[in-house]
């Protein structure tokens, strides 16, 4: 029996390590998008620049929402490791709601831009802006989907080793997206006003 537990522990160790490697590959993809934004952000063809378009209060709200969600995600993980099902569901539920609010704000910002005629076809600056920020948003969306599905399984099956491992990977992913967002907040939004 102990051998079985060893086997599971080894598997968890491997999977978590592999997930770290995956996160690094994802980070490199973002690195390319950041580099592309750095090269192209000035190419507005005389149109509005980031300074004219961006709203700092909105970006700050998004940042605060995501940072808070990272905090609640951490608390949820502590609960999950102690196998406290109700608390896990509660805190991940809050994380989910905060993530959803973040996504809503981002979509609102995009809709606003498109409504004003600043689409990603307008110029290279907007192309790189939409793709960089949109890729992050897409990651948030998949994180929310992952969270939703996992929580449904937690409700059905309870907190077993397998699901706790899934939640641990999810929380890594969520914190990772938080870090990427900090970089977006500084290099895209704050830098436009320097």
């Amino acid at each position: 029996m102990s051998r079985h537990i060893d086997h599971e522990a080894e598997a968890t160790d491997r999977v978590m390590f592999g997930f770290w490697v995956y996160l690094m590959t994802d980070l490199l993809m973002f690195a390319i998008l950041f580099a592309v934004y750095a090269v192209l952000h000035g190419n507005t063809l005389g149109g509005e620049t980031g300074r004219d378009l961006f709203s700092l209060p909105l970006a700050l709200q998004e940042t605060l929402l995501l940072l808070t969600s990272s905090f609640t995600c951490g608390i949820a993980m502590i609960a999950a490791r102690q196998r406290k099902k109700a608390q896990t569901l509660l805190w991940f539920g809050i994380t989910f709601a905060l993530g959803l609010a973040f996504l809503g704000l981002e979509l609102y910002e995009f809709a606003e831009f498109i409504h004003e005629g600043h689409t990603m076809q307008t110029n290279a600056f907007l192309s790189s802006f939409f793709v960089l920020v949109g890729t992050h948003g897409l990651h948030i969306t998949s994180g929310l989907l992952w969270m939703g599905v996992t929580l449904i399984y937690v409700m059905k099956r309870g907190l077993n080793d397998h699901l706790v491992r899934k939640l641990a990977m999810l929380s890594l992913f969520w914190h990772f997206l938080d870090i990427v967002w900090i970089f977006i907040f500084t290099t895209v939004y704050l830098r436009a006003f320097v």
Partner: peptide, 22 residues
């Protein structure tokens, strides 16, 4: 490849000669 796909499919300006692409 995704950026190239965006250029071709959605008409963005990453690698085009127009629109400020490079």
């Amino acid at each position: 490849l995704f950026l190239m796909f965006f250029d071709r499919y959605f008409g963005t300006h990453f690698f085009t000669t127009t629109g400020g692409g490079d």
